[in-house]
Design a protein around this nucleic acid. Structure first.
Ligand SMILES: [Zn+2]
Ligand SMILES: [Zn+2]
Ligand SMILES: [Zn+2]
Ligand SMILES: [Zn+2]
Lengths: 167, 167
DNA sequence: AAGATTACGTTATAACATAACGTTAAAACG
DNA sequence: CGTTTTAACGTTATGTTATAACGTAATCTT
């Protein structure tokens, strides 16, 4: 983890997912500084691991990875606390259908994410769709329901795996 | 559990949720007969419990209830197998954000359900929205993704609880 | 009736998550 | 700067959710 800092203006939000784990952590650090919250060492480590992994990360998988990095054993509460923080701040999301966690490409738009998750290769794609968001909100309103959070996950087969299967 | 059977024609699909647990089980039995699959005793018991409970049922909660009904101890695989069957046949759905299970009001339209779940009273509402379904399908298609299952859950406060809170 | 299949019982264990409490590190305040 | 207050973390234990594996019983097929 370097100490480089990234100017949000040269780090456009629309394709932030393309940047490296180190850059993502730097970006998160800037946001945390602005918000007056602390992106501590362990929180940085967990966020970096989420970006490095190409699939949703289980909490115990993160624990193993952390123990490889440092020498000391890491207990579950340590990593769950870090995940709680990252989710609160919008830097990570939980994939409920997998009991696993992914980094979030747009902390600015908290809770408006759709995930496509491949059953074959575990790759995931994070999308936003304001129209779908509106539609969900309308459904809730119509039922007199006040939403606080939503989960939208589509499971199936990704484009890459579909090609492989067609042989 | 009585052995009464219900004619689907007098059991309209659009508001099936209003019927009793016994009626729901009878309806499921008819469908299973038609499909040539077996709604065994334990599967019936679990389905009835799902309808009787006014909130999503945890698997271990179902185990406790089953043990109260019969004398023998019930091991987790027993109830998970029953749940797997009910979900396969469209008689139940898993609420992923709760690790809990609800009965399904429309086995005919498998995998097109939206759930509104109240954080306060645990009540849930199952909706269908073809337009939203289409939108999700479009998102997937656009990403070259072939969906097999979707999870759409909206968490928040239900109309009833909102009234109570406004005091 | 024999063989194949499906469902179930049972034991053990894996996988995921949190409660509770003491310690350390950081921030706030005078 | 030193004291108070708060936030973060370490640690132990335990709670909760889910499945692997294997043998037995019930049901279906021929
Ligand atoms: Zn996100
Ligand atoms: Zn894939
Ligand atoms: Zn349903
Ligand atoms: Zn409610």
């Amino acid at each position: 983890m370097t100490e480089e800092s990234i100017n949000p203006e040269v780090f456009p939000e629309n394709n932030r997912g393309d940047y490296s784990a180190v850059q993502q952590v730097a970006y998160a650090r800037d946001i945390c500084d602005a918000r007056g919250v602390r992106l501590t060492h362990i929180r940085q480590q967990v966020l970096a691991l989420l970006w490095e992994n190409k699939h949703p990360s289980g909490a115990y998988e993160l624990i193993e990875a952390l123990e490889l990095q440092g020498a000391r054993p890491i207990a579950p509460p340590t990593v769950y606390r870090a995940l709680d923080f990252l989710i609160e701040q919008g830097f990570a999301c939980k994939i409920e259908s997998r009991n696993a966690f992914v980094p979030c490409a747009s902390p600015e738009r908290f809770n408006e994410h759709i995930f496509l998750i491949c059953d074959d290769c575990e790759a995931w794609l994070e999308l936003e769709d304001p129209q779908l968001e509106q539609q969900l909100a309308d459904e809730a309103t119509h039922a007199g329901f006040k939403p606080s959070r939503r989960v939208v996950e589509v499971l199936g087969t990704c484009a890459k795996c579909l090609l492989t299967q067609e042989v």
